[in-house]
Write a protein that binds this DNA or RNA. Structure first.
Lengths: 190, 190
DNA sequence: TCAGACCCTGACCGATCGGTCAGGGTGATC
DNA sequence: GATCACCCTGACCGATCGGTCAGGGTCTGA
């Protein structure tokens, strides 16, 4: 038994993450990954049952963190949900920049697969929390702009240190959500 | 001479747009497009020199509009550039939802190709305008969040009428840019 | 009636994809 | 020295990709 693999397993995972971040999931072949590691394509498939399994393992941790965020947000309401949702998602996005970008950029259809069905649901609940559990179209659009924008910005500013990126993203989120946060229902029209 | 083609040309273009929007550029084969049109794959390649040429024609109009926006923004400065940039991009994104989503979602590498090099430059100038031509990291991050978020939201809310979507997006943009718009340099920290 | 442009087809091409498989090297255990 | 699990390789598979090609209908104009 012991551990599954000494080091190659991890090297393959890291190489895949690097390649996926540059050329995307579909744009990266097992051969590409093998070349980067310095082993054969068959070796990659010895450590991982399939290309999809490789992706799944790569996404396991960020998806688990996303699930935990979903759990934390469940009992919250209104402005509280918005604030916690924004902070939680910014943290997550900053921490898992590459993985989130990968997920968001390439998988309207992969996320539609049954194996990732729960992710879709969690995303919807996150939009719901960010919009303060309102059905108002404007609130939902704001939430979507923020979630997608934060994801993309994280992927784009890969080299910016976490401690610079996080507060800036939080500030944008707060400004964007501001007039919706206090229930100043005076302005309904733009 | 006369016109290039009677109707099939347009049908192929429309079918390609539909398929690309669902399964992405790479995820859509010429066979898929041909099947949707009801002709052979060879017919598709009779009307378009290559798959890439099909994409180029599909993107021609939105890219031209983007170029015009870039031109309009060139002489503007500061808050004026921000306002015009936000309004112009919201209009463009709402109008060309599918194409923008396609471009943004799939082509970190296709955009890197020489044929699309100018698009990359225009995008950078657009970020520049949205951040009020400032080098401040926070401003640039805000701009990126907005541009990416607006694109994604447009793709996500395909069924929302333009007249509902546009004002909502403009409102988000104004809120997100608000504290940066007047140069109230009192707050530098979050 | 014939020529030629136009539109399209089916067969085919080489390349590449994800994945399989038989077998070889190596190191620990008995 | 034999055994066996583990790690890995090169050769190979069927499928599919974008793209080519020779040729066949169809329509028009001379």
């Amino acid at each position: 038994m012991a551990r599954d693999t000494p080091q190659t397993h991890g090297e393959i995972l890291a190489a895949a993450a690097r390649r996926f971040a540059v050329t995307g999931y579909r744009g990266t072949s097992l051969q590409d990954i093998a070349r980067e590691v310095g082993c054969s394509k068959a070796a990659v498939l010895y450590h991982f049952a399939s290309k999809e399994a490789l992706l799944a393992e790569l996404l396991a941790q960020p998806l688990e963190v996303l699930r935990q965020l979903d759990e934390r947000l469940a009992p919250l309401d209104g402005a509280e949900a918005q604030r916690a949702g924004a902070e939680g998602f910014v943290d997550l996005a900053v921490r898992f920049r590459r993985e989130i970008a990968l997920l968001r950029g390439e998988f309207p259809e992969l996320l539609a697969q049954p194996a990732f069905a729960h992710v879709q649901q969690i995303s919807e609940r996150l939009v719901d929390a960010l919009s303060g559990h309102t059905d108002r179209l404007e609130a939902r659009i704001t939430a979507m702009v923020l979630l997608a924008g934060i994801s993309e910005a994280c992927a784009e500013f890969v080299d910016v240190p976490d401690d610079d990126l996080r507060p800036a993203l939080l500030a944008v989120a707060r400004r964007a959500l501001a007039p919706l946060d206090p229930p100043s229902t005076t302005e309904d029209r733009i």
